[in-house]
Design a protein around this nucleic acid. Structure first.
Lengths: 252, 252
DNA sequence: AAAATTGATTTCACAATGTGAAATGATATA
DNA sequence: TATATCATTTCACATTGTGAAATCAATTTT
């Protein structure tokens, strides 16, 4: 009846891991019994998971959860955490400014939009969650470029050839790197119709415990509506999120 | 040549998750391309994982790592951390005392031995990693019982019937709970040949950031060799591990 | 607006894949 | 030594997962 696709092995694997999560150092027999699987079946699945370090075995041969899982998990956790923490603050910022607020991650040479709270105005800027944009045409992207050494910025320029999205897009490597460096020192950046004509953004970075920039926060609005006062509001919002991620503001 | 068991779907699933870990908000097409899987195959596997919340989908339909993974992670992480942190301290304690040092976790009504550093003496106590013992016959187990309310201790007694392992085993519920409470206040416990004749233990608890008891540390030795001076050495070792897990000693 | 393109999802016949019974190994227990 | 228990391997077979192709849905182009 459930029209949904089930893959038997995967379902079984999940039960096994679920069982492992409950009993540390469980024996094959225990796991097989608890999951109602034939011991040979359980054995094969566990062996396969063992390859990928998803389950570990102690000196006794007993099974435990392996380190391979952590790799994914820590990432999933951070992203989910980030979203959960950021959303209320983003909403408050949207209410304050009336404009769309975006949360982005860097992925290689692009920023990815992972969360947003849209403006309530009739004319508004709306990014699709999951969509991407190159670093050099966004406010947050330029900040992220500023995080790296100048050489990395130039290398980005060379690699991507800085395609122009509008007549305002920065296409000169030198200018881009200066702009990125400038953004870094002032801890925020503008995007003046560099991605799309008529759209202006302000961006700041979000940092975690280690001080590393893990995400970007930005306000996107029709260019003529953008107010400079928003910069400090955005910076405060960004700082709030960073703080909740364990970042301690240096100096003040 | 690799004699090891491979399950195709699981291998494929792992590649898919690996790919997802790299690209947040990836499309089916991207994932299928990167893993060299047919899109229908990738789709089916991802759909199956989606059921178990191992992958999530955003409003756009793009795939991400899901919250289901987190469930395992925190556990695996903590255990691996714990062992890594504890081992050198356990070794130092073994060298200082010359006796076997054990690291244990509570799992329901038992303690599980997850790590040990064995005595170098000819006659020594050796617990098998992964083996279990009921709470009421071990030093650490009594401390763990003491962590809970008295009612929980009585419930444990009723549930397990307190089987006797030796003539020294505490089989009276009242006595057990008093003993557990006593252990709690003095922050260590003895096991006087209650699990096996001739074997004496001392145990302390290890706590994490939240103050919760997450593990137990114990010294196991032939009864007549056990020295009371070891109590403070053991307590110090336990405190060191707790501290590294983020626990702050209340008062001093 | 219609046509064309692209990507996601479903269907389906088939064979490769995962299955479980039973045999074998390895350890612990009597 | 014999016995029991549990882990691992083998193997014939049926189930299960597979991929080609057909839909469906959403964009983009004409």
């Amino acid at each position: 009846m459930t029209n949904e696709t089930h893959i038997q092995v995967i379902d079984r694997m999940v039960s096994l891991l679920e069982s492992l999560a409950k009993h540390q150092h469980a024996s094959l027999k225990t796991l097989a019994a608890e999951t109602d699987l034939h011991s040979s079946t359980a054995f094969r699945i566990l062996a396969s998971l063992h390859h990928h370090d998803w389950v570990a075995r102690d000196s006794n041969g007993a099974y435990q959860l392996g380190s391979g899982l952590m790799r994914y998990a820590s990432q999933a956790e951070q992203q989910l955490d980030l979203r959960e923490i950021a959303l209320p603050i983003m909403t408050a910022l949207r209410d304050q400014t009336g404009e769309t607020v975006n949360l982005t991650l860097r992925e290689n040479d692009e920023v990815v939009y992972i969360e947003r709270v849209t403006s309530t105005r009739l004319m508004r800027v709306e990014q699709v969650i999951g969509s991407r944009a190159p670093l050099h045409v966004t406010a947050v992207g330029k900040l992220m470029l500023g995080e790296d050494a100048a050489a990395a910025c130039l290398s980005y320029a060379k690699r991507t050839q800085l395609p122009a999205y509008t007549t305002n897009t920065i296409t000169d490597p030198e200018k881009l790197c200066t702009s990125a460096e400038h953004a870094r020192t002032q801890a925020y950046a503008f995007d003046n119709e560099e991605a799309e004509l008529g759209v202006g953004c302000i961006g700041v970075l979000i940092r975690d415990t280690s001080g590393k920039a893990v995400a970007g926060l930005s306000i996107s609005a029709p260019r003529e509506r953008r107010k400079d006062e928003w910069v400090s509001a955005l910076q405060q919002a960004g700082a709030q999120i960073s703080e909740k991620l364990g970042y301690f503001h240096p100096a003040s």
